[in-house]
Design a protein around this nucleic acid. Sequence first.
RNA 1: GGCGGGAUGCCGGAGCGGACGAACGGGACUGUCUUGAAAACAGUUGUACCGCAAGGUACCGGGGGUUCGAAUCCCUCUCCCGCCGCCA
Length: 419
Amino acid sequence: MISIEYIRQNAEAAEEQLRSKGADVDIEHVLKLDEDQRAVLHEVEELRAKRNQLSSEMAKMDADEREKRLKEAEKLKRTLKEQEEHLAEVTAELEAILRKLPNPPAKDVPRGQDEGANVVVRTVGDIPQFSFEPKDYLALAQQHDLIDIERAAKVSGSRFGYIKNEAAVLEFALVRMALDETAKENFMPIVPPVLVNEEAMRGIGYLDKEPEQVYHLVEDNLYLVATAEHAIVPMFKDETLSEQELPKRFIGFSSAFRREAGSYGKDTKGILRVHQFDKVEMVTFCDAATSAQEHERMLAIQERLMQALEIPYQVVHNATGDMAFSAQNQYDIESWIPSEGRYRETHSTSNTTDFQSRRLNIRRRGTDGTELVHILNGTAFAIGRTLIALLENHQRQDGSIAIPKALQPYAGFDVIASA
RNA sequence: GGCGGGAUGCCGGAGCGGACGAACGGGACUGUCUUGAAAACAGUUGUACCGCAAGGUACCGGGGGUUCGAAUCCCUCUCCCGCCGCCA
């Protein structure tokens, strides 16, 4: 959640920033509500002070005297109740608006309405030149019996898939490789629950932005996470961490579930956009002062992983209109997909600053007092999309697929070739 | 799924309508003493919000209620512990 003090102190800048992320805000209205809220709060607190004083006086009175003051006390009680109700209304109205506002972008974020305004920061790796017509991953998968979409449709519906044979082994190879790489930077491996309660999901900011994207188990009021981040970030809800234990870095593995409502007809083929996929995800809790640096660290890890897989990619600085709701700054990594002749998103990393920690009340205690922590997230590997890039970029003329050297020890084989 | 017991500050643990932001013990910090440390003694030790400040308000698992007044009474939810049942 955005800080109301920030809006109060930077009304003009805030308006521009929020609009740049596509929010339709009326800053004047927000400021007015904020003022009202504080005025009513002041009134309520004054009434409470009076009540408290009268009550403690009454405690010392004899029965007779108490009886005399009772009328006054009762009246005070009624007035207080009215004002408290008023306060609750104003507060709720203000909060409802604030909850729907995105994290204002950092100054250096490119402005723009959509991904067209994204800025390519750098391009790494040579685009493979094939002496033959490269196949798409589905053709390759069929040749080697790696992915079964048809039967998944029979069992689960559209946008599901079975990952099989070497592809299934590669999933675990990728997971292990990501664990090892991030271990060098003290990320703690973690397997979180994939079902989380409403409070946790709300704390993440997901329900306010795109509630239709998340699977909801109505009977138990539980939500299926759309990324491990959703289960890892709320772990420290209402906790104050000590300065010394920061940064806390986690490398989580979990399935991710997305309804993909509204994406009908978009990427309908294969496993690029599915309702369920596995993912290795980084999450860091750190000091406000170091979060920008942590963000760069995450990006660097992502790049190292892609370089180890020998997949050409580009780093994109997301424009305001293409950023996540919670992100103050965001980079995507787009991997080269030969069959499409273009780069497609395989990774993302966001600095959410104190946007999530404010909602979840996650602080850190230091010698300088307590303050909200900063929280960052970043993809290590989204398995499905990484498999796509891997299969297509490393295919050979006969359709066999070379496994990059760094991955071989994890996979236990160096090529996928049909017998 | 059934029955029983719990949830209080950094930790343990009392309190069960008014003097409780909370006894007592431990821990931590500061000071005295000491060459230094320990011990002993004295003191300090939560967070958030409103306010220029003085000060005020809120918080004893969450929410609601009763009352002039709730950690304390009532309702409800969640979680934890124990026993039984079922089960990968």
